[in-house]
Design a protein around this nucleic acid. Structure first.
Length: 577
DNA sequence: GCCGTTTTCGGCCCGACTGTTTTCAGTCG
């Protein structure tokens, strides 16, 4: 039982208690779930080694919840969970993942219409039954259907940020199997697409059976679908499929090229081969029966007169023409971001103190972070006002006064109000090192209104970065309706940078928008939007988006050393370059 | 249910928005 499994049960408990109308317990269970999920320590190991007292060292876990976790680990459950699950035998986690459907409504839906699953909900909504329940209307019914459709449209795809760590771990472990020469993840993961269909791993080895045995034995594997010496397919616990293909070492490059895709890219490349009287397949590039190249991707592309393109840009959208002319962009390298300019702390809805976030960032090799807690009008997070921002600044000054080789910048994630004004006054903003702003309300304005609102905000002389510009949350919330080209042009005109929010389900800006920004010469910032120390490692997911958008190091402000970054930030907006 | 050099008992983030209402519950973040 992983931390994630435990957290899921605790979240379910929180929802049941909300259905019951119990006070304070929901928040306590929710807090414990968050804490366990983001804890670097494995709860099962902790319990094994130190019993319940060790579990209670996890913040938010006390007498009661530690007993429950013990029950989960030893017996797979506990009485209170069983009692509540029996009373509400519904898939409450899935149902409440639909927007505007919370525990109270889930309870009513079960009591009135016996709705237990998403499928039940869809049937009832389609049949017009939801609107018959008091307190529910036509709009609510439509909203549920929209929510279900949104969920379905992302079905079968997994977020890169969730799958990449698993795929990388498998790749590394297969590489350690004796006889293995290459083990490489190909497909959409190698291209770092924002969502992933499945995991494809290519292996060259002298001992295929051994590799396949190790593969099907991974703890993540739920079910073996195919088990052969050259191709084995499994389904993982999370539902994602994973393939291992064993290929001949002499054609590794051709296979890697073939299985990396994209499909569209490969179609164009194969057409080029045909035009030259050649044939390209996963075994090599051929003239008749003579194999001209296959060992490495570079060799294969070279036969076609192309320099090898980074996987992230193999989308058949200009990369082949650029490769032909030897004019490929030099993409920003992974690991080149020096500091994170969007982080939240326990001053608002983050889980850790400023000092803890800074220490974790420094441990990851970063040189600086900006603390950008929410501001006043985001009241539910305890958003900061001018006074609190000043107080927070004092804490930051004190931390920076200690020699550490690391710098904490003063910042904020300011709210953009409906009219485009910011919810913190200019005097206070002026004193901050980095001012970010974002839309957190009125998501449904018309395109014209929404665009005007965001552009108005960018005209503020103190706003440095537009945070997560479209506000989307993959699989959950549609982006705000924005004329993104107008916004990016306004960023250029006003000297405002735009953010790539690396947080896995945000990925905002997305690749195509980044490319537009790069082409227009707008500066980018890559941040994690970390609400916990464990989130800081997402930076490279943002670098992946930047690479998909053809960005170079010089396009991204926070690849600069601190002094250079500060020079840009302190330059009046109309003079920034 | 958790937490604590202001407390071992008494607090616990709260305002805006929406859709359903005839005064407000539920949800969001």
């Amino acid at each position: 039982m992983t931390n994630r499994d435990i957290a899921a049960v605790l979240r379910e408990m929180a929802l049941y208690y909300e259905m019951e109308g119990v006070a304070f317990k929901p928040a306590a269970y929710e807090a414990a779930a968050d804490s366990i999920e983001s804890s670097g320590l494995d709860a099962a190991t902790l319990y094994e080694e130190g019993g319940r007292p060790a579990l209670k060292k996890i913040p938010g876990v006390g007498e009661g919840i530690s007993h429950h976790i013990e029950g989960l680990l030893k017996r797979g459950g506990f009485p209170e969970y069983r009692r509540l699950h029996k009373k509400y035998p519904i898939d409450v986690l899935t149902l409440t993942s639909i927007e505007d459907l919370g525990p109270k409504r889930a309870k009513v839906l079960y009591q009135k219409l016996k709705i237990k699953t998403l499928h039940d909900l869809e049937r009832a909504a389609t049949a017009g039954k939801i609107r018959t329940i008091p307190g529910f209307g036509v709009k609510t019914e439509e909203k549920f259907l929209k929510g279900i459709a949104l969920k379905k449209s992302s079905h079968g795809r997994y977020l890169l940020g969730h799958i990449l760590p698993i795929a990388t771990k498998m790749e590394e472990e297969l590489r350690r199997v004796s006889g293995v020469k290459h083990a490489v993840v190909a497909g959409s993961i190698r291209r770092r697409q924002e969502t992933i269909g499945d995991i494809d791993i290519l292996v060259t080895t002298s001992q295929p059976e051994k590799v396949m045995a190790v593969f099907v034995g991974f703890p993540e594997v739920a079910e073996v679908l195919e088990h052969g010496p050259t191709k084995t397919t499994v389904r993982l616990q999370n539902g994602c499929q994973a393939d291992v293909r064993v290929i001949a070492d002499e054609s590794f490059g051709a296979a890697l090229q073939y299985f990396t895709g994209s499909k569209e890219h490969n179609v164009v490349v194969r057409k080029m081969a045909i035009a030259k009287g050649l044939k390209l397949n996963e075994y090599g590039i051929w003239r008749g029966r003579k194999r001209l190249a296959a060992k490495t991707e570079e060799d294969v592309y070279k036969v076609l007169g192309l320099s090898a393109m980074p996987p992230e840009i193999r989308t058949a959208s200009g990369e082949i023409e650029a490769a032909k002319k030897n004019r490929l962009p030099v993409l920003i390298p992974y690991g080149s971001v020096r500091g994170d300019l969007q982080t939240q702390t326990s001053w608002t809805d983050g889980e850790f103190s400023i000092a803890e976030m800074a220490a974790a960032a420094q441990a990851l090799g970063l040189e600086y972070i900006a603390v950008t807690d929410h501001t006043r009008s985001l009241a539910m997070t305890g958003g900061l006002d001018e006074k609190k921002l000043w107080l927070q600044g004092r804490e930051i000054d004190a931390l920076n006064a200690k020699p550490s080789g690391f710098t904490i910048l003063k910042g904020a994630e300011v709210n953009i109000m409906k009219d485009g004004s910011l919810d913190i006054d200019d005097e206070a903003l002026k004193k901050l090192d980095v001012v970010g702003a974002a839309v957190h309300s009125h998501f449904k304005l018309s395109r014209a209104e929404q665009t005007a609102r965001v552009i108005a905000a960018m005209k503020n002389p103190h706003l440095d970065v537009l945070f997560h510009p479209t506000g989307r949350i993959i699989g959950r919330r549609e982006p705000i309706d924005l004329d993104i080209e107008a916004v990016i042009k306004a960023a250029k005109a006003t000297g405002t940078a735009v953010e790539i929010d690396s947080y896995p389900d945000r990925s905002d800006l997305r690749d195509s928008h980044v490319r537009m920004a790069v082409e227009l010469g707008v500066k980018l910032v890559i941040d994690t939007d970390a609400h916990a120390t464990a989130h800081l490692k997402y930076l490279d997911l943002g670098v992946a988006i930047a690479r998909r958008g053809w960005a170079s190091t010089s396009d991204v402000l926070n690849t600069r050393p601190l002094a250079e970054l500060l020079r840009w930030l302190r330059t009046p907006k109309n003079k920034r370059k």
